[in-house]
């Protein structure tokens, strides 16, 4: 479509192309942007929380819980409109399980959280395989799309924008604390951070963001891993700049990936997670190799 026609369509929402842009493309692009932004922000938080620049939003099992609930919904033929709520429910159940088990009675332990999260995640993985193997063939395609992360049917309920904004403001307020926390829990305490509270706040912020993103688009991979990493290379490690940069670029990255997903094999649409993974895996390996050369 040439530019003139395109502008005309935007100015005239009732025409056929205008309807296409206003009813289909824009909502989908907005959903993609919000999901990318949330995953990137969550990735930044998770990396500080686990003090590992290679952690991603799904490492603690949030997406696994969401996936199980959604797949069960698909098996039992729950209405499509209810699936995001099921995903959100599953994600929060997983967060509560990990939170409850990792917290125990003792003080904060990053290792215990990581182990609890990783084991819970693999538990969900097993359940997902079980559901897939028992499902009728005609529902498998939808399930696979969901598992890869897909924006074809994505709708963006207004409350998710509230979650995004709220978490963004809170995270930005904590940005300098995150800088200090990145240097280790003891250092952070010595610099005046009550880390006992701070770490759980960071964990809950990251989990709510991930759960919301997953409820909109399924488990889109690699955005939460690659974007914070790239932004660190680009703008540095100060979270007061890193958080806004990652949020903006995370959104942009997913909008572009989704555009590719729609157009590469047009008219056939790919799940956007395939694109982010195809872009993300080589990028990640490159970064990992670079980190190894530097001795991290």
């Amino acid at each position: 479509m040439p530019w003139g026609e395109w502008l005309g369509a935007i100015g005239n929402p009732d025409s056929q192309s205008g309807e296409l842009i206003w009813q289909l493309r824009l909502p989908r692009a907005l959903a993609a942007w919000a999901v990318g932004a949330m995953l990137a922000m969550s990735g930044c938080l998770m990396q500080v929380l686990l003090r590992n620049p290679l952690a991603d939003p799904y490492v603690l099992g949030v997406s696994g819980g969401a996936a199980c609930a959604t797949l069960l919904g698909l098996v039992f033929g729950v209405a499509v409109a209810l699936l995001p709520w099921l995903a959100l429910f599953g994600a929060l159940v997983s967060v509560l399980i990990v939170f409850g088990l990792a917290r125990g009675t003792g003080p904060w332990s990053g290792t215990r959280l990581l182990l609890t999260g990783v084991v819970t995640a693999s538990g969900w993985g097993a359940l997902i395989s079980l559901i897939l193997s028992l499902s009728p063939d005609n529902s498998l395609r939808g399930m696979l799309f969901w598992l890869m992360g897909d924006l074809s049917y994505a709708v963006l309920p207004p409350w998710t924008l509230l979650v995004l904004t709220g978490c963004f403001v809170l995270t930005l307020g904590l940005a300098r604390s995150l800088n200090v926390l990145a240097m280790g829990e003891t250092t952070a305490r010595l610099l005046g951070e009550p880390t006992g509270h701070l770490l759980w706040v960071v964990y809950l912020l990251a989990s709510v963001l991930t759960a919301t993103a997953v409820s909109i688009a399924g488990s889109v991979g690699f955005v939460g891993l690659i974007v914070p990493h790239l932004m660190r290379l680009l703008v540095g490690s100060d979270h007061r700049i890193l958080i806004p940069a990652a949020t903006l670029f995370g959104g942009l990255f997913l909008v572009l990936s989704d555009t590719l997903a729609r157009t590469v094999l047009s008219p056939q649409q790919l799940p956007v997670g395939v694109i982010t993974a195809l872009l993300g895996v080589p990028l990640f390996l490159l970064l990992l190799n670079r980190a190894r050369l530097k001795g991290v």
Partner: peptide, 14 residues
């Protein structure tokens, strides 16, 4: 032990 790539000045400023 520094894990993240902050600059020397940023770290002193903490």
């Amino acid at each position: 032990v520094y894990v993240f790539d902050a600059s020397v000045l940023e770290t002193a400023l903490t």
